[in-house]
Amino acid sequence: MTTIRDMTDIEKGLTHLVAHDPRLEAIVAVSGTIPLRLSEPGFASLAAIIVSQMVSKASAAAIWSRIAAHGPITPATYLAIAPEIAATFGLSRAKAQTLSGLAQAIVEDRVDLGALLDMPPDEAMAAMTALPGIGPWTAEVYLMLCGGHRDVFPSGDVALQAAVAHAFALERRPSARQLRQMATIWSPWRSVAARLFWAYYATHMRRDALPTR
C-alpha cells in the first residue's frame, strides 16, 4: 500500500491532482505550502483527534494541556487519572467515555492501533468504527494523519465542506455524501486533496484549519 511519508509525496500528489482536475491549479496557487501533517500512530494521536472534534483549536489545545499535565499520554496513564480529575479536563461526556473505552481496549489487547494502519483502508475503517465512540470522521483522519494513507477524504469534515464550497463558488456547502462523490475525481490522492483544502481554508478563508467534524 502506497503511503504519504514526506513532502515529496505531497508534491507528487499535487501534480497528479492538478493534471486530472485543472480547477485545482488556482486553489494550489492561493493556499501556500501544503503541510505534511503526519503524527506518530498510537493512543495519544488518536486521542488528540477525538479531543479536536467539534471544538476550536484553542479549546482543543486547552483540554489537551490539562490531560498532558498528568504525564505521558498512554492508555495506562490515562486510565490511572482519578475520575474527579478527568472531569475537570473540559471533555464532553461522550468524548470522555470514548477515550476511556479506547484506552481500556488497548490495555486489554482488544485493539492494536499500529496494526490497523497496515490494513487496507476499508478494513481499517470497519475495525475502527466498531470501537464505541469512533465514527467515520475520526477513523479517516487517523488513517490520513497517522497512517499516511494517501486516498482517504473525510467528507464529513465541516472545514472541507466550507472550503470546497468557497473555492468552487457553490451556492451552498455540500453534504458529506455530495462531497464524497465530488472527491472521487481526486483518487488516488484524496488525502492530498484534503490537505490542500484545509490549507485553502486556513490561508485564503483566514480560518482555523484544524480538522473539524
Rank of each mutant, 00 (worst) to 15 (best):
S39N: 15
G133K: 00
M119C: 10
R37I: 07
S65Q: 13
T3V: 15
A202F: 09
A26Q: 13
L145T: 13
Y200D: 06
V192A: 03
H166P: 11
G135P: 02
A165G: 10
A62P: 05
R195N: 06
V28Y: 06
T88W: 02
A209L: 02
Q104L: 15
R66K: 11
L102Y: 04
I63A: 04
S175L: 07
A69R: 12
V141A: 07
D9C: 08
P35R: 00
L117A: 06
G71S: 09
S191E: 11
A209V: 02
G13V: 07
R66Q: 04
L143A: 01
F168Y: 15
A209H: 01
G101N: 03
T74W: 00
M1N: 12
R213G: 09
L170T: 05
A127K: 09
A62T: 12
R5K: 14
A68N: 08
A183I: 01
L131P: 05
A127I: 07
M128Y: 07
M7C: 15
G156R: 00
I185S: 10
A193T: 05
A163E: 12
T184A: 15
M54P: 03
A29L: 02
T212M: 10
T212S: 13
L116Y: 11
M119R: 14
G42D: 05
G13F: 09
C146T: 08
P174T: 05
T77N: 14
D109N: 10
A19N: 13
L117H: 08
I185R: 14
M125K: 08
T138D: 02
Q97C: 14
R190S: 06
W137G: 00
R177E: 15
H166I: 09
L17D: 07
G71D: 10
L99W: 04
L160W: 01
T184K: 14
T212L: 11
S155R: 02
I10L: 10
P75Y: 05
A115L: 09
T15F: 14
D21T: 11
L179M: 01
Q161K: 05
R195D: 09
R213M: 10
W189R: 12
A82P: 00
L131G: 07
